[in-house]
Structure formats: C-alpha cells, structure tokens
C-alpha cells in the first residue's frame, strides 16, 4: 500500500526529500561554527599546564654571551599534547632548538568549550639571561621589572 501511495505521489516524495535537505542546510551552519581551536593568552595557556620542561641554556650561547627573549607559538591538541611548535624569536639557533626540545615535552590539561574538547593555540615566552656567569632560563613571571635609568632602545634581534 505504501508503495502504491508513493508511486502515485512521486512529486510529493521528492518534495519530502527537498524539505529534509532544507532542514539539513539550516543545521549545517550551526555545526560548522563549533570552535575546534581557540587562541589564548600566555597566562591562560600556562594555567592549563600540567607538565613543564624548562629549556636548557645552551653552552655555546653561554660562551658567546648571548642572551635575550625567546618566543614560540605552540599548538595544543584536544588531548592536551603539543602538536606543533614554531619558534618565532630566539637570540641564537641553539636557544631556538633548546626551546623546541623543551616545549615538545609539555603537557596541558585539555580545555573544553561546552563540554567539547578543543585545541588551543598560544605563545610561550622565556628569557635566556646570564647572571654571574651562569646561564638562566626564566619565565616572564620570574622576571623583574627593569628600573634602568637608560631606556632600552635598539633593534630587536
């Protein structure tokens, strides 16, 4: 019987299909707007950190008395592991490599939006400084505020 009805109402059957397609079309933009990855600030990113490995101060850089700021952009997957690292700025190649080696071992608490795990993207900063002949690597929160009378000017490395 159903077959009979459908056979006599081919137009209606196709109309149903159209209606279903329209409903799907309405629903699609909603799904496509669900965030998969969000960009967050360094303090927020560090708040999600559960395992930090600090970069080593490379011995060759110490020999050259090289110091300065290193910044890397990291891509954290929905499971909290680091999936991509790009060192944006580093005083020397060896410091960039040290930064990359350390960040590769970092683990984050997975972040969620509305219960859905999401990846995060953010920047991490470290200061490579030489203090009394020893190389130190400090996070921004461990750095002091400069009080030098002479303002720092000059091109960044």
């Amino acid at each position: 019987m159903d077959f009979k009805i459908c056979r006599h109402r081919l137009l209606r059957c196709s109309f149903w299909e159209t209606v279903i397609l329209l409903l799907l079309a309405c629903a699609l933009p909603i799904r496509s707007q669900t965030p998969r990855e969000i960009r967050i600030g360094e303090s927020q990113l560090r708040a999600l950190l559960i395992h930090e490995v600090r970069p080593d101060f490379p011995t060759d850089a110490l020999g050259k008395h090289a110091s300065g700021v290193s910044v890397a952009q990291i891509d954290v997957g929905a499971d909290g592991s680091v999936i991509h690292i790009e060192v944006l700025q580093a005083p020397t190649e060896s410091m960039a490599a040290a930064m990359k080696r350390a960040l590769n071992q970092w683990k984050f608490r997975p972040d969620t939006v509305n219960g859905v795990p999401i990846g995060v993207l953010g920047k991490i900063t470290y200061y490579f400084i030489i203090d009394q002949g020893k190389g130190k690597v400090l996070a921004p929160s461990e750095m002091g505020v400069p009080t030098a009378a002479q303002p720092k000017t000059g091109d960044n490395p």
């Binding site: 600030g41 700021v69 920047k123 921004p140 720092k152």
Partner: peptide
C-alpha cells in the same frame, strides 16, 4: 598579543 607577558620586563 605579547604585551601581556613581555612589556613590563622589557620596557621601563
């Protein structure tokens, strides 16, 4: 986007 973590340490 790096002012938050760097400005206070690199500027006077």
């Amino acid at each position: 986007d790096e002012l938050d973590s760097r400005a206070i340490h690199e500027l006077v």
